[in-house]
Design a protein around this nucleic acid. Structure first.
Length: 803
DNA sequence: AGCACGCCGACT
DNA sequence: GTCGGCGTGCTC
């Protein structure tokens, strides 16, 4: 028997199956999708069996044999094996990376180098001392002792050997259980034959005889029966108790919210949407629904009901959220509704915890997984529904290999299982809404807020006017007044500081003009070196103007704001306010998000100051004021999605205010109040925004009218980076269809990261059947030649950002 | 990728 | 002479 194995080596020439012989004693154990250990060159690596066959094209005597099989049952289902092939081709990654990404980190191997003693007589005393009584010693220990040189010599002499040990992370947590297995007569007999000194043993045996249960932990025995370690041990030896280790799941502790599951009565709109979804479930229709519901329209309640329907039919469900540790409130609702049937998967869990949750899914012990991006690979065998909440979020796209989008995987799995996929959002991505308009997705709309609250009043504050009136602070007079008012009323305030974009732009503080590229409709990026403005789409360059091209004002300069500065200003303006800060710095620790949110929810602070991350899922009754300090930062990102992102962010942020009985107020500060993304987000006018934005996208050839692929070339040397970027661009231009546009090469917006210069080329196409094939050829050229010169080439199909 | 093999300069 | 530098080539 021969198996094809994809080995755990991420390198171009290794990215194909390798054939191995299966030793006879393992033949009954091999299955597609199981992990194996195999010899590979001089070392030993982990791999996946992807095929079983009887014949090989190679000389069978040259084949090596599998070393061992790790899994009794395969970790990859047949479906996931197929999915990995699709993923490999779709994202142009190594097959091994596609396989690994579907498993929890605990099932990925790590490798350790050990030195094994062969002939101790050939070693000098220093070296031999390292071994002590052991046969092997770790490579690190030798390195630490500074004996690497000696080791190399002994290696070539054959006095020691190098061996690679594959370390497994996956450890099930176990506890020891003590069980009464002997029959009663035997126990009584043992009891009577105890010596008189054995008082404690006598007590324990008598206690055990009185108990109904027969299995105890050591903790129970010491606490309840007042036994000690040695007494238990003595009884164990007599055969009265038997020790067994039992697997347990790690307990995931979360903060305790004293809550009960509230079922809301559905509105007519909600019922209608749910009926359509459930109909698709009943008839196994593989429909993708776009659930477009304004903030507070009760999308979560629909998700809960649809999933419940799935469970009742004996099927499973995947519920994806952008990043779950940010939305503890969402998880809580699922836990409350479905209890033990829910597994939770997010980055806040330890490797062991993730492994436990994964096993619950794999064993079919849970019916629902609520999780971030990678939960889309949950090894369920009979999916009834897949849901992506906030489908427009860019966190669904992984930004390193494999560069997959969870939405694409969801649709693939929906097709495989013949089940509906739901994409939910208050502000759908333009791609999804366009597909819904064309009838590719089925559109479901929720236009009303579930509890009939009014939308918050949104005030757009013109910061140009503030400047004219001599207010140079970051708080406009109106916002400052509102904050003071809410502080007095003991209501809560959320202040939102747009993260400073990766790139900076130049803005006129008098008229709000931002200098843009005339060909690409993208803000020009400010480069300090040479005081230049550059377009990283087409390469256009111009000097930084000293006067505003629109109004001739001299108040034109590059724009950006720091978090500390805001905190200082708050302290100055509102000295009595209690402020909680939530950004990357304050949320690094495990569970920090949840803690900060709980503190705020419990009323321990008046103001929550934060970045991007507070825009989602925050739902507290006492928040009545939301302030956006600088709406312009996202608006002028050097990215064609800048307006879309701004609209989404403004809408989400506004949605945080007044979700309950109290009326909400929102202040948005900006230098460009007339911009449609800001203007239209005031009343959550999604459709007008969609149509306006679509015109721009069409005019400049961006998605959803064109697909994009980003090819990036980096090198330590500027000249080589640009030279190879040009080679790649020219080659693509020559080899792709004439209808495809190949733009560039240009310097990336961040022109240098970690001492590597970055150049890029953008491919725009409506239909390009040759694309994958040609990109694969390009990769081949790169791997065989360029890589030796230190060039790194990355390809991102449907990039989430082109910065 | 990671390891062995092999072919040349700088030392004991 | 030998140690050890890294260029080259292979991994079922």
């Amino acid at each position: 028997m021969i198996v094809e194995v994809i080995v755990d080596v991420s390198a171009y020439p290794i990215d194909r199956p390798f054939d191995y012989v299966v030793p006879e004693e393992l033949e009954t154990l091999v299955e597609r999708g199981s992990r194996v250990h195999v010899p590979f060159g001089p070392r030993k690596v982990q791999g996946f069996i992807t095929n079983i066959k009887e014949q090989t094209d190679l000389d069978i005597s040259k084949l090596k044999a599998i070393h061992s099989i790790i899994d009794v049952e395969p970790v990859m289902t047949e479906e996931l094996l197929q999915l990995s092939k699709w993923l490999t081709n779709k994202t142009l990654c190594y097959e091994i990376d596609a396989l690994q990404v579907m498993l929890p980190a605990a099932l990925r191997a790590t490798y350790k180098k050990n030195i094994k003693l062969v002939d101790s007589s050939a070693l000098d005393a220093d070296f031999l001392a390292l071994f002590g009584k052991k046969e092997v010693v770790s490579y690190e220990a030798i390195e630490k002792a500074g004996l690497l040189r000696a080791m190399k010599k002994y290696l070539s002499d054959g006095a020691v050997q190098l061996e690679t040990v594959i370390k497994q992370h996956a450890k099930a947590k176990t506890i020891a259980k003590y069980k009464v297995t002997a029959d009663k007569e035997f126990i009584v007999e043992q009891l009577n034959s105890l010596t008189k000194q054995a008082v404690k043993q006598k007590e324990l045996i008598e206690w055990l005889l009185k108990q109904e249960q027969t299995s105890f932990t050591m903790k129970q025995l010491t606490e309840l029966a007042n036994a000690t370690n040695s007494t238990v041990k003595a009884i164990l030896e007599k055969g009265i108790l038997e020790k067994e280790t039992e697997e347990v799941y790690r307990e995931i502790t979360s903060l305790d919210y004293q809550d009960i599951d509230k079922r809301f009565e559905l509105t007519d709109e909600q019922t209608e949407a749910l009926t359509k979804i459930n109909h698709a479930q009943e008839y196994a229709e593989n429909t993708t629904f776009l659930l477009h519901g304004i903030t507070g329209s009760g999308k979560t309640e629909i998700y809960l009901n649809a999933i419940e329907h799935s469970i009742v039919n004996g099927k499973q469900a995947i519920m994806l959220v952008p990043e779950i540790s940010l939305t503890p409130q969402m998880t809580r609702r699922f836990k409350l509704r479905f209890g033990d049937q829910v597994a939770v998967m997010h980055s806040g869990l330890s490797i062991g915890e993730k492994y436990d949750e994964w096993r619950k899914i794999w064993r079919g012990e849970v019916k629902v997984v609520v999780g971030a991006r990678s939960a889309i690979f949950a090894p369920f065998k009979d999916l009834g529904i897949i849901i992506l909440d906030e489908e427009h979020e860019s966190t669904y796209k992984q930004d390193d290999n494999p560069r997959y989008h969870a939405r694409d995987v969801a649709i693939w799995r929906g097709e495989y299982h013949q089940c509906p996929v739901i994409l939910g959002s208050a502000t759908p991505s333009l791609e999804s809404y366009a597909r819904a308009s064309k009838g590719v997705y089925s559109l479901l709309k929720l236009k009303m807020r579930a509890k009939e609250q009014a939308l918050p009043t949104v005030n757009v504050v013109d910061m140009r006017a503030e400047l004219k009136n001599g207010n140079r602070s970051m708080f406009s007079v109106d916002l400052a007044d509102a904050v003071r008012d809410k502080l007095e009323k003991k209501e809560q305030i959320v202040l939102f500081l747009n993260k400073r974009g990766f790139s900076s732009f130049v803005l006129c503080r008098d008229c709000g003009t931002v200098v843009e590229c005339k060909q690409c409709d993208i803000s020009l990026t400010y480069h300090r070196a040479g005081e230049q403005l550059k377009c990283h789409y087409c390469g256009h360059e111009e000097p930084v103007p000293t006067k505003c091209p629109e109004c001739n004002s001299e108040h034109i300069r590059f724009f950006g704001t720091g978090t500390q500065k805001v905190e200082e200003e708050i302290a100055k303006l509102f000295p009595y306010a209690r402020v909680l800060r939530m950004d990357v710095d304050t949320t690094r620790a495990k569970g920090a998000h949840e803690r900060i949110l709980k503190q705020f929810g419990d009323g321990e602070a008046d103001i929550l100051l934060g970045t991007q991350m507070i825009a989602k899922g925050l739902d507290f009754p006492n928040i009545t004021l939301v302030g956006v300090l600088n709406a312009d930062t996202t608006l002028h990102l050097a990215d064609f999605r800048a307006a879309e992102k701004t609209f989404q962010l403004m809408t989400q942020v506004s949605g945080r205010a007044g979700r309950h009985d109290k009326e909400g107020q929102v202040y948005i500060q900006t230098y460009t109040p007339e911009h449609y993304a800001i203007e239209l987000s005031k009343s959550q006018l999604y459709e007008p925004f969609y149509h306006t934005e679509m015109l721009t996208r069409k005019q400049y050839g961006y998605p959803p009218f064109y697909y994009l692929t980003l090819v990036q070339v980096t090198h330590e040397n500027v000249l080589l980076a640009s030279e190879y970027a040009k080679l790649a661009t020219d080659w693509l231009r020559a080899n792709l269809s004439s209808t495809t546009m190949v733009v560039g090469p240009t310097a990336s917006a961040i022109s240098k990261i970690q001492n590597r210069y970055r150049y890029q080329c953008l491919i725009k196409y409506k239909k390009e059947p040759l694309l994958i094939e040609k990109l694969q050829q390009l990769i081949k050229m790169y791997r065989t030649d360029w890589i030796k010169k230190g060039v790194i080439l990355t390809i991102d199909l449907d990039p989430s950002t082109i910065i």
